[in-house]
């Protein structure tokens, strides 16, 4: 047995050690979660694209889809992303009142989107497209409804931040990550909507 080679132990040059802040951990965690959510929506979209051809005796996408309504909902959600961003920016500058205003606007826009979706769903049901009428119906309501639940949860999250600020006072730099995390989620829900309105509504109207 030969003696082990002599080495000097040198650490990779590292600066002073500090633990990651909650902001760093949470943001990474949110990103991982959103990546996982992509797979979730992918499975739903895969279901939709392979199921939407079965319309049975129920109305078809071409008959049902109302592009002005969808466009309105899309712009509402798009606008909410902008207001979210403006709110976040206000928070970063410590402008408490402005943040609260934008938060409220964002929540209202989110609720408006959910409301429009509720209107849309009821219309479709009245026109004969129930979830159990055809597999187009089943997969449509599941996919779009799932997204709607995401928006609803997003509103609840923003509301929880709103309540947090009301109870604990202005969002300091140490709590800013809470808003950042929620904003990432909010934007993501908007990103998913872009995919859904393209795949479901636009392509559904085209083909």
């Amino acid at each position: 047995m030969s003696a082990p080679e002599v080495r000097t132990l040198e650490a990779t040059p590292v600066g002073p050690y500090r633990l990651p802040t909650p902001a760093e951990n949470t943001k990474l965690g949110i990103w991982v979660w959103l990546a996982s959510d992509c797979a979730l929506f992918a499975a739903l979209i895969a279901t939709y694209v392979s199921m939407h051809g079965h319309v049975g005796h129920a109305p078809t996408p071409q008959q049902l889809f109302d592009l002005p309504l969808t466009a309105t909902a899309t712009f509402v959600l798009l606008l909410s992303s902008l207001t979210m961003g403006l709110g976040l920016e206000a928070a970063q500058h410590g402008e408490h009142q402005r943040l609260m205003r934008w938060l409220v606007v964002t929540m209202i826009l989110g609720l408006a989107f959910v409301g429009l979706q509720a209107v849309e769903f009821t219309t479709y049901v009245h026109r004969g497209l129930t979830p159990d009428a055809s597999n187009f119906g089943a997969s449509f309501f599941t996919l779009v409804g799932f997204h709607g639940l995401h928006v609803t949860f997003g509103v609840a999250w923003l509301l929880s931040i709103f309540i947090f600020v009301v109870r604990k006072g202005p969002l300091g730099p140490r709590d800013l990550w809470r808003l950042e995390a929620a904003s990432l989620y909010w934007y993501f829900v908007d990103v998913v909507w872009v995919v859904i309105f393209t795949v479901v509504y636009l392509l559904g109207k085209v083909s």
């Binding site: 979660w33 996982s36 499975a43 599941t142």
Partner: peptide, 17 residues
């Protein structure tokens, strides 16, 4: 886990529905 469980969750949700 992060990437494989979501399709299964969706499968379960669809079956539940």
């Amino acid at each position: 886990i992060v990437f494989a469980f979501p399709p299964f969750t969706i499968n379960l949700v669809l079956l539940m529905i």
